[in-house]
Amino acid sequence: MSTETTVAEVKKPAEALLSKRRKKLISDPLVDDNPITIQVLGICSALAVTTQLQPTLVMAISVIFVIVMANLTISLMRNTIPTRVRIIVQLAVVATLVTLVSEFLKAFAFDMYKELSVFVGLIITNCIVMGRLEAFALGNKPYDSILDGFGSALGYSWIILAVAFFRELLGSGSVFGVPVYDTLAGFIGDDFSFATNGLMVSPVGAFIILGLIIWVQRTKTGYVEH
């Protein structure tokens, strides 16, 4: 860290911990600048892990951890990172964090590790992570970077959770592994039955749900691609 920035900070009154600008860092990526639906990043994992809610939730938590920590680390190092190798440095930091997540899952949540092993590794190539590092963490202070990373990760998380909810409900007839239709049949009577849709289990189902979410969202916000 250079002394320059600290001097500048002393001059103006300290910004509130959650000032308007900082709140925007978190809230913008949720809808108006959502990484998946607006920036169309991280689609691959959004299609792959979202067949069921439980692995999706673990994936979301892992991505939140990785983005926030990577943003923090890169932001702390931003004035020392040589410009010419910055992408490799970012990649090394992200890969380390992802490996840590994978190791911890293996030690403490072995069942999850078995289910998610491939996809946790693929967080490294999640464009959202690298995107936030390049676009934000390299040029902003650590605390702002944490907020920005958290916002982007939340934006990513709620979308994949929403997709997973519909895919699991329509494709497997359950929510978080609880068989909804069978339970409903227990209340209403055995006449109640609902055929599960195999399309929802395949990645095509995720495309459809994602497309519908984007449609609804853009109708509401009036966002148009230029």
Binding site: A92, V93, T96, T99, L100, E103, F104, K106, A107, F108, F110, D111, K114
Partner: peptide, 23 residues
């Protein structure tokens, strides 16, 4: 980063092997 990773692997190793055996 190398030290961090190998350190974690060393610390978590026994727990991982136990989890595998249990599995």
């Amino acid at each position: 980063l190398g030290l961090l990773l190998s350190g974690t692997s060393q610390v978590l190793g026994p727990m991982q092997r136990k989890a595998e055996e249990l599995d």
